[in-house]
Nucleic acid binder design. Sequence first.
DNA 1: TATGAATGAGACTTCATTCAT
DNA 2: GATGAATGAAGTCTCATTCAT
Lengths: 213, 213, 213, 213
Amino acid sequence: MEKSSKATPGRWRKPKQARSLERVERILDVAEAMFMENGYAAATTKEIAAQAEVPIGSLYQFFPDKAAILEALAARYTDLLNQRLQTFDTPEMLQLPLSDYLKQLTEGIEQFFVEYPGYRAVFMEITTTMPEVDEANDAKLIETMASILPKLHASLSLEDRKVISFVLVKAVGNLLWISLGQEPDLRQRLVIETHRLAFNYLNAWRQSLPSTK
Amino acid sequence: MEKSSKATPGRWRKPKQARSLERVERILDVAEAMFMENGYAAATTKEIAAQAEVPIGSLYQFFPDKAAILEALAARYTDLLNQRLQTFDTPEMLQLPLSDYLKQLTEGIEQFFVEYPGYRAVFMEITTTMPEVDEANDAKLIETMASILPKLHASLSLEDRKVISFVLVKAVGNLLWISLGQEPDLRQRLVIETHRLAFNYLNAWRQSLPSTK
Amino acid sequence: MEKSSKATPGRWRKPKQARSLERVERILDVAEAMFMENGYAAATTKEIAAQAEVPIGSLYQFFPDKAAILEALAARYTDLLNQRLQTFDTPEMLQLPLSDYLKQLTEGIEQFFVEYPGYRAVFMEITTTMPEVDEANDAKLIETMASILPKLHASLSLEDRKVISFVLVKAVGNLLWISLGQEPDLRQRLVIETHRLAFNYLNAWRQSLPSTK
Amino acid sequence: MEKSSKATPGRWRKPKQARSLERVERILDVAEAMFMENGYAAATTKEIAAQAEVPIGSLYQFFPDKAAILEALAARYTDLLNQRLQTFDTPEMLQLPLSDYLKQLTEGIEQFFVEYPGYRAVFMEITTTMPEVDEANDAKLIETMASILPKLHASLSLEDRKVISFVLVKAVGNLLWISLGQEPDLRQRLVIETHRLAFNYLNAWRQSLPSTK
DNA sequence: TATGAATGAGACTTCATTCAT
DNA sequence: GATGAATGAAGTCTCATTCAT
């Protein structure tokens, strides 16, 4: 615990690293808000720094360029969503009947989008601006999904699991994501329909295979 | 039925309007290519004009600003896709068994995306930059879809048709659209899976209702 | 007074020249309004033509360039103001006591500015943009004034008349002109003060010379 | 009290602020010259920056837009003229006979216009382009004048002082200002006439009131 | 390490004027 | 003569990023 015990005895100085972390978070929060408000292109690094009360020079010490802020935001969310997905990879969950399981999953994901409205804004920009990042993100989610699937239905081949996960992540994800922006009534119905879509899809797969869950 | 037999025998003069239309088309084509290449933000009006061999001033006579070019591109595609959708609103099509019908539809839409790879790039930008336009575009497609549905299943309520169309347009559209960027093998499988998704979804609806097709 | 009795028996066509005059007037009126609204620089020839319902090409047949419109406006006003000034060069007027004469003059000029609020806008631009034109305009007014002065006081030398006219035109003109933009109360007082200024100035001259009016 | 005797003994570093101030001054000087040469509209920010040897980006750090340069110029002159006016608000000056006092004042102002020929160009543009700024500027001068007047004549009401100051500032100011552009002979006479105008105006006021200076 | 003034390429857009029809 | 689409030079201003302090 160096940095001297004597010197500058008055003001306590927060460990540098902690201060940095705080700043980075503040930058990300501000950037997210601004991206949501007017889009990535309209936001300026200067304004982000100003609102985050961080000198522009410091911002560039944390992020090599503007795009990196968006990337960091995306990473933050991918981690978060992945964690949420893993929530559904527990014995209690997996023992539920398929329909119920998917109901939980569908609602859980919708819930996630409600909790993090920034997800939408961030990935809209990402999809357009950095397809690779978007791809990578989805790949992760698909992988997570693929690792859950065999527990729902044992006899799925790796190939099948990948494709099914792809379809689920993209279709279900997209639908729930879009539903967010809709009127409450329609939105509620959309969640139900999304469940219907997912259930019947997976159910059809189940019936086409020898053993079922 | 020539454009005059006697007068102005020498140089043939293209009607003004035709020349303008040609220019507008050229601008749109060039812009589309550039938007696909590096994105909307990276494209410059100056370069678009140059490549389209149209003076920049003329470009601004046709389009009030850069965004208007993107909008026009979107409108062009919405019309095109709508027309394609209407292709499936014929007696011959509608008499097919549901599965076959959806196979045609799925493949037809995929085909469309193959034919017009610009669709993707354009609507990616649109979704981010001009959500209203995107909304309007989807609304049109959903409406068209909703007008086809009752012929597939008579007893659907208006409300149901709207929701189902929404789900189909968004999920199927998104899936096929994304599949475009995938490896051929995966892509082929995705088209099949999309069909499976759509069929089982609609089939579930059918079975939950009194009379069926 | 037709323009031929036989030819083009159907629609009557207004003599070309008359139509042109009308158009020119319309252009000037519209231009004046626009110059007053947002200034000369902000007005565009295209918009002037559009509002005057005259094709832009025609506008350029009447006026070689944009500046010419401003010049024409100035000329229109110079003539008008000169005429108004000549109103004070009548035997009845000139027999009035100096104070009364100047009261009439002051109020008459103020009245003119009220009648033609465009005068202000036009000459503001002119002064800045085309000092020569402004100079010429003032020179005319000064000359007119100088031709009236000897009737008020016979023994003024040409040199004196010129200087006095200069002072009167510039100071009185400016003051009345500015007063236009003031609150009614202040404006009324300014007219009175302008008269006081002019009267005491001329009166001082009178007393410094041998014979008086 | 040197800027440190020990530390950084080598290169002397001009304080940041000083450098900025210098740049701002240079920009203003260059802009003034260009506005005088061809008018505000003809001057370009790019050229101003180039001649001032300041990057265009820096120019825009000091001034939000082109108009702000003109405004700054106006403010600079208003301050200057106000200071000059205050020169006439001293006991020695105020004890002079009215005629002598006004002679000093008239010549002092004329002198000012000679010293700062840019004043004319700047306020010509300002009057047209930003009447509010012009108004504010004149209001300041009028106020200063009004604060001097009671010392010339004690029994003037506030209302009277305001109007008299208005007349003096506008008429005398305008006359002297215009005289600048005239031939030397005429100019000299105009200064004399301006004095005559002002003196007889104020003198008339004096005689109409009970006590005099 | 921290700061923020400095940089300048280049983006979008305007508009007076022309001239082919 | 009448028309108005066409032209393109040129203007203002932005902003991601750097680097001297």
